[in-house]
Amino acid sequence: MKICVLMKQVPDKDSSIKISMDNLSIDESIVSFTTNESDAYALEEALQIKEKTDSEVVICTFGKDSAIQVVKDGLAKGADRAIFISNKDKEDLDILSIGKIISKKLLDEKFDLVLSGLQSDDDGNAQLGLIISELLNTSHGSLVMGTEIDGNESIKVKRELENGWFQWSKLDLPASLSIQSGINTPRYASLKGIMAMKKKTIDKFTIDELGCSEINSKVNLDKMYIPQKSKSTEYIDGNPSEIAEKLVDIFKNEMKVLG
């Protein structure tokens, strides 16, 4: 099979976020960047399918030049090659526009499977894998928590539903799957993998080179701000011992939850 994994670079979850003076972006100088969590699970799922079938795994990343790190990490873990689309020409595209650009490139490749994380930890649109399924006219499954190869014509996926329910669904190939975190245990890159990465191909494109310079966003960011607190909260300070004493006192005497 020929498998594509869509991977994105996002701020690390432990980074604190500060909004820039223009109120339209965050201060990137104080955040560290990493691979989007569910995308790492998507890559692992692709690598496991590759081990069971005879497959090629291709990473596709859209983003700024620093995002090439995501591609390199994925290649070191075992992906075969990569496609990198630089967003330098247009930085603030909405998700539908990004979907159109990526689809334009994927169309030539004729993948059997496109895997993506179900949601990014920055914008959180949770749409890309589904948009791509429509533009490439494939089947789709979202919130995927398990896969089972089912011959050459279809794949079975276990989908997560609300409140602890699940459902298996049979998808005709080609298919686009958006992968939920927790589906597998992502591997670390081995030293051998890191050495091998250096010889793997990364094909780089700009939006212009893909013939997509006409694509424009209809959704525009107006302003970013730090959420307002509406609930009244009592802050407890002190050193760890003082805090612990105050908390236990509150449990006993104010909340009356301790016997």
Partner: peptide
Amino acid sequence: TYQTRDWVPRLSARLDIPFISD
């Protein structure tokens, strides 16, 4: 909802109507 997550992005792409989710 989880159903919305599954079909509405695709509807958006089909009709070329942008979708501001969540």
